[in-house]
């Protein structure tokens, strides 16, 4: 019975030692088991069902990825689909350059990426795997999908991505911009003064300003009153006289009349007939004629200069001459 007690005590001691040793080895002796990657993420470009998406998978690898090592991504069966061979796949080491891998092939739910000599990742570094150009199609059913990381590089891990529970991962934002168009003339008079045969008379430039939200832009027309029958600079007192308007280069001593247009600010187009300088003028008409236009909404007000010019001959009757130009802006909504 005493022996029995001793034996029991020894057995208990032995068991204690064995337990201690077992715990010691479990705690401190590294096993042959693979390390677990950490800090894993997969940033996708789309998460809508049945929609193609890019993937950017980032994880920290304790072991590192060596040349010819494979990194596998195992997708749930009947979930993500892709071609047998993916192109443009890269691996970056710790946020560095994206380097092309040797190959990226897919079979039976497993995407196998083989590192090249340039796409290695040092131990303890973050590996960034990019799968570009929408080569992977999301599952047709919404839910959470677990993807596991493995391969010959030695580490393992897993992460999950959401495929949207609704029908879409996008929200269409709609907005309206109020229709608007404004027009203003800088003045309502333009005096050519006392005209002589020795010079071409000029007045202006006066300006008109247009701003609009019309998607098709705007058109500004000019319409001439003239004599009420014909366009021109008109002396209505007897004996009446009309200095006719024409597209011409005015010369001192020769009757003529017309206007010029020019961009003051903006990118509007001045009609060719009025895009003149010096003593060149464009003919006015009693029907509305385009003087400037723009094909889209104005980001800022457009300002256009207008100059009127006239010349007389020795035979041009003395008196007071007048003409009325009507400018109209029309939005193309």
């Amino acid at each position: 019975m005493i022996i029995s007690v001793r034996v029991r005590s020894k057995i208990q001691k032995l068991i204690s030692i064995l337990v201690f040793l077992l715990l010691f080895f479990m705690a401190y002796v590294p096993g042959a088991k693979a390390a677990v990657v950490s800090t894993i993420s997969d940033t996708m470009t789309r998460q809508k069902i049945s929609t193609t998406s890019n993937h950017t998978i980032v994880f920290t690898t304790p072991t590192g990825i060596a040349n010819t090592n494979t990194v596998t991504l195992t997708f749930p069966s009947s979930s993500f689909t892709m071609g047998a061979s993916l192109s443009g796949v890269t691996i970056a080491d710790n946020g560095g350059a994206d380097n092309a891998v040797t190959s990226a092939s897919y079979a039976t739910n497993v995407l196998t990426i083989t590192a090249s000599a340039s796409s290695t990742v040092a131990a303890g570094h973050a590996a960034t795997i990019k799968i570009p150009t929408a080569q992977i199609t999301n599952p047709g059913t919404a839910g959470s999908y677990k993807i596991t990381i493995g391969g010959t590089f030695g580490d393992t891990g897993a992460f999950a991505v959401p495929i949207t529970t609704g029908n879409d991962d996008q929200i269409a934002i709609a907005a309206d911009i109020d229709l608007s168009i404004t027009f203003a003339l800088s003045t309502n008079s333009c005096a050519l003064g006392v005209m002589t045969t020795g010079a071409v008379a000029s007045c202006g430039p006066f300006t008109y300003t247009v701003g609009t939200t019309a998607g098709g832009g705007y058109t500004v027309t000019v319409q001439d009153e003239g004599s009420g029958t014909n366009p021109g600079l008109y002396k209505s007192a007897a004996t009446t006289k009309l200095i006719a308007t024409s597209t011409a280069t005015l010369a001192a001593g020769t009757e003529g009349y017309g206007i010029q247009g020019a961009v003051n600010s903006g990118s509007q187009t001045i009609a060719a007939v009025y895009l003149k300088t010096s003593n060149n003028v464009g003919a006015l008409s009693r029907t509305a004629t385009t003087i400037s236009s723009y094909a889209s909404a104005t980001s800022a007000d457009h300002v256009t200069n207008v100059t009127a010019k006239a010349a007389i001959s020795a035979g041009t009757p003395a008196g007071t001459y007048q003409d009325t130009l009507t400018f109209l802006a029309t939005g193309n909504f």
């Binding site: 229709l179 608007s180 168009i181 404004t182 027009f183 203003a184 003339l185 003045t187 309502n188 008079s189 333009c190 005096a191 050519l192 003064g193 006392v194 005209m195 002589t196 008379a201 007045c203 006066f206 247009v210 609009t212 939200t213 019309a214 600079l233 207008v306 009127a308 006239a310 007389i312 041009t316 009757p317 003395a318 008196g319 007071t320 001459y321 007048q322 003409d323 009325t324 130009l325 009507t326 400018f327 109209l328 802006a329 029309t330 939005g331 909504f333």
Partner: peptide, 18 residues
């Protein structure tokens, strides 16, 4: 459709010959 209403839309060109 928006239309612009302006304080004025006309310019009177005047001249005289002595």
């Amino acid at each position: 459709i928006a239309v612009p209403i302006a304080t004025d839309d006309q310019v009177v060109v005047s001249a005289s010959v002595d």
